[in-house]
Design a protein around this nucleic acid. Structure first.
Ligand SMILES: [Mn+2]
Ligand SMILES: [Mn+2]
Ligand SMILES: [Zn+2]
Ligand SMILES: [Zn+2]
Lengths: 145, 145
DNA sequence: ATTGAAGCTTAGAATCATTATTATTACAAA
DNA sequence: TTTGTAATAATAATGATTCTAAGCTTCAAT
């Protein structure tokens, strides 16, 4: 588990903006998030982080995730009342939540759809954030042979 | 607080489908939800319900709300990790969450937008539910005179 | 190098929306 | 009426998250 140099720089710059220190735990939690394209919960991040940093605590994982969110390097993703998930994909995108596997997939949004989304709001509504999520099942389209 | 006859029939029919009894509490909670166009939390429903049914308990409010949801007469609406809100608007629609007032507004969605929303999913993704929410501030456009 | 202040991490306690448990009550069928 | 089942209400339990307090680390100034 190693944080790529470019990500490390992004983290250090973002932390510096907020007068926060680049610590081993913060780098490691960021590395854990970047190493997989799924959307782990804090608990899952904790389990993964402990693999190569056994002394890290769950409280610290929560703290680091919160810091990464306030640095805008990571986004929180919520489905109904399930535990919050964390996503390091900074592009505007939607999420697909598979009811079978409980896995979460990123869904790209074309720019014109983003535009028409914002245009549905009546006068007087100023949206600073738009969230779009799909729930269903992902059927396997892999050819069997 | 009185449940209109047509709504009462809708409720009784839906309950009968599931072999559930039409109780005073279930009718009353439904009436509370229909009487305002906001999106109250279970706790807010509880406070309102007690006004004309002081003996109702919070547990029963939760139970009734859950029943109404399983009857598909009411939908749950979640914003991040805030308490679940309840919406009796059965039309497909989006929600606008005002960060200032913490009020929630329904936003109608044109049919062609609904279609293009579903068309962004790659092959193999079958969505049974689409959720769209906006967060921001609603500026007052009421003329001052 | 030492010191002091501020920032960090950690363990554990607290919070709070929601769910589970269970005794009591309501009610419909026999 | 009797009897069986469902519903309600009070209370306890749950669980993700946040808070608290204590000790540790970093770093700049001396
Ligand atoms: Mn799930
Ligand atoms: Mn709010
Ligand atoms: Zn994502
Ligand atoms: Zn609504």
């Amino acid at each position: 588990m190693k944080l790529p140099e470019t990500a490390k720089n992004r983290l250090e710059d973002a932390l510096k903006q907020l007068n926060l220190r680049p610590t081993q735990q913060r780098e490691h939690v960021f590395a854990v998030l970047l190493s997989e394209r799924d959307h782990p919960t804090a608990d899952e991040v904790y389990v993964r982080a402990k693999k190569s940093m056994p002394s890290i605590s769950l409280a610290t994982v929560y703290n680091c995730l919160e810091i990464l969110v306030s640095c805008k390097l990571v986004k929180q993703v919520n489905f109904d009342r399930e535990p919050t998930r964390y996503c390091p994909n900074l592009a505007e995108h939607a999420h697909f939540h598979c009811n079978d596997s409980h896995r979460v997939y990123d869904v790209d949004l074309p720019q014109d759809l983003l535009n028409s989304l914002k245009s549905v709001l009546p006068k007087g509504y100023e949206a600073s954030k738009v969230e779009l999520s799909f729930h269903g099942t992902r059927v396997d389209t892999t050819p069997s042979k």
